[in-house]
Amino acid sequence: MGRYRYPAIAESEVTPRALFEQRRRFLAGSAALAAAALLPGALWPRRANAWPSLLESRLEDSLPSREMAGDEALTSRRDITTYNNFYEFGTRKSDPDVYAHRLVTDPWSVTIEGEVNKARSVALEDILRDMDLEERIYRLRCVEAWSMVIPWIGFPLRDLLALHEPTSDANYVVFESLYDPDNLRGQRRSIIDWPYREALRIDEAMHPLTLMAVGLYGEPMPNQNGAPIRLVVPWKYGFKSIKSVVKIRLVKERPTTSWTEQNPEEYGFYANVNPRVDHPRWTQARERRIGESGRRETLMFNGYGDEVADLYADMDLETHY
């Protein structure tokens, strides 16, 4: 399968050379590891620091290739890591940066189950070993009418799903975040029915723009941004892009999701960025780009309409908000 040329905001951009070469070198060196992986589970215990060192080695020298994406500047790393909605650590924007050091990300595994032929719980290092990493510079538009431009590092979700062979009954993909109230202080208050859950229709999940991200700005994912692995769906409001994913379940019926459950009038299942459909209590027609003054006009599908509008061709987006 050729590399998907995603719309890097204005012109498209291929993977940074350093990252690309890293991967080549890594693939060559990983044959021995792949052989070791064939050993029975008991001889191959999950160990700490398996995925962080692996990821570090693949991210070496892979700082973002540029500061601009078309005529839009990348949001600074500092802003991306200090202005977060991650209610597991508290509801203030500054809380995740202050408290996310309590998130235990190592060891980490993701359970992939439901309507797949190959259900399993897979260690993050094994996922990383199987996936090609690339940089994707995406706009992120929060439902609260602010936005950023973020250089993610990750792989298309569809590559991961394909490995596990979804069945013909797999109509939706459900994601679940870590539940660990001892360390995630926000989970001690039931603002949301924890753990956080999100979901996509299967065609949305299989869309090449849909990313599982493991890093940003050339580094492993900071805890406050959803370490160690999170979803990124750039044409939907940010709350769809669930953080710190521990479970991916393929299902037949459309599931309920956390924000829709919390307030169905205000947060729909689709949550596509749409300047023409307002949130009941505020407008979605414009947004504050973090790091800029003033407001920008919000773009339909967050500017990814050419790629994704077809997914919703027969739908009334006023009803299916």
Binding site: Y87, T91, E144, R189, I191, I192, Q262, N263, R281, W282
Partner: peptide, 9 residues
Amino acid sequence: WVLTRADYL
């Protein structure tokens, strides 16, 4: 109240 999102403490 009206500008608050979810956390009504």
